[in-house]
Computed example of a mutant assay.
Amino acid sequence: MALVTIAPVAASSNSEGAEFSAPNEVSAREGGSGYEQRFENPNGWDLRRLTASVPLSDIVEVVTELEVADDVITVGVLPQPGDEAADIETSILATLDDMVASDATQATADRVPYSALSASYRVARAMAERATPLINRVTLRPDAVTPALLRGSAVDDLSTADSTAMMDGPANQGTALAAAICEDPWWPNYFTVIAQPSTVSGERYGRMYFQWTTNARLERLQACENSSFEPDYVTYNYDDRHYFSSTITSWTSNLPNAYQDTTFLDGTDEPTYTIGTPNTLNLVPDKEYTTYFRAKNGNYSSDTSKANAQRGVRIPSFCYSPWCVFARDTERFPSSGWMAIPSTGWTVYK
């Protein structure tokens, strides 16, 4: 997708001067010469050794997975121009700081069951501070030279005909009931959506909480063959006024095998920020899930938002890359209209 730039709004007391650009998938994700190179290591690579082996300019994304009790807290960082290894460490900690801060806000609002999720992120923050997190996933630009450190750990180079494309996939932790049918309603029972300034100067974050409190709903979703789930954080940009820019710098989630979705072919009227999971069989009922992204400030201090619950399918079924996930059905929260942001949390039940 070619880079699309929308002119900034006229200056006003509420305008902040930044412009919105649709993410450039050709340069940032495909490079015009094939798909990005992705590598995985369950044991993790040392961050400093990794960045000594690969120029940061060749790295699209690094991901660390922090195991905390029954949660795996996944944190992704997209290096920015001029970053060094220490900046990646700082970004991971800042992401976890934002999560702890927003959980504290939810505690004040007496939300349940935020407490277990909040505890997981507090522990993850302490873990990341005690020792530099190991990097479990690395995404390189298509034209980057693969260093010896990463050789043998490529997982989904779909540009080659004999690609293994993550054939093993994540282990199923649950199985949909045989009696369940892929039908409505399959979406979570509620979404809570937050937008606030980040602890990082010049950046803001968006966060969502959601949960399947009705077991039958999740069973219907899991009954959909090879199904994925992507909760979309969507903002309104028809007026060229946006709270977030398109430049995501970090993300996190406790979704199983979480990934940042591509924005390939997405438009600019409704900017969409998505952290998804490729296999719904790993989801469990009565557990609160969350997604978060951090982005550079947009050109306006207010905006409106909605949440889209999106059911997808993996094609081919053995591929767990974001490039293999295709939307099949979407449920909007709220059903119509838009909700104001920034916000410490608007909630819609369905």
Results as ranks from 00 to 15, higher is better:
T199F: 00
E40Q: 04
E84P: 06
Y205C: 01
L93K: 07
Y292P: 15
D103A: 04
A10F: 12
L255K: 02
I73T: 09
F326H: 08
Y259A: 01
P142L: 02
N297S: 06
P113G: 08
T214A: 15
S317Q: 06
E203P: 01
E230G: 10
A223Q: 08
D303L: 09
Y114M: 00
D286S: 10
T160W: 11
T291Y: 07
V313Y: 01
F333D: 10
F318V: 13
I315W: 00
D240R: 06
D156K: 04
A148Y: 00
V145P: 02
A258G: 14
T64V: 09
D168V: 12
T235E: 12
V284E: 09
M1A: 11
E19I: 00
T272H: 15
L66P: 13
V313W: 01
D240G: 10
A161E: 00
A109H: 12
D46T: 11
L50P: 07
V72W: 02
G31S: 13
D46S: 12
L66A: 05
T139V: 13
P231E: 03
V155P: 13
V234N: 05
Q310I: 00
L96A: 06
D87M: 13
Y243F: 14
T192W: 03
R220E: 04
T175K: 14
F293A: 13
F293H: 15
T249Y: 11
T268W: 04
S53D: 02
D157L: 07
G82Y: 13
A340P: 13
S159L: 11
A340R: 06
T272F: 11
L134M: 07
E19V: 01
A131Y: 03
A107P: 14
S246F: 09
D162G: 04
A28G: 05
V123N: 00
R204K: 08
A295G: 09
G276I: 01
E129L: 09
A179R: 11
V123I: 00
G174C: 06
A195K: 11
T74F: 14
D168N: 03
N172W: 05
W346C: 12
T139G: 08
P185V: 09
N43S: 11
A258V: 11
L265K: 15
H242Q: 15
V72S: 07
S246W: 09
V62P: 00
E183H: 00
N226R: 15
Y320L: 02
D269W: 10
V75D: 01
D240E: 08
T268A: 15
A161Y: 06
F191T: 14
L140Q: 10
N189R: 01
Q310N: 03
T146V: 13
T105A: 05
E36Y: 08
I194M: 03
A327M: 05
S118A: 03
T347G: 07
L134F: 09
D46H: 10
Y233F: 10
S33W: 06
A69M: 01
T175G: 13
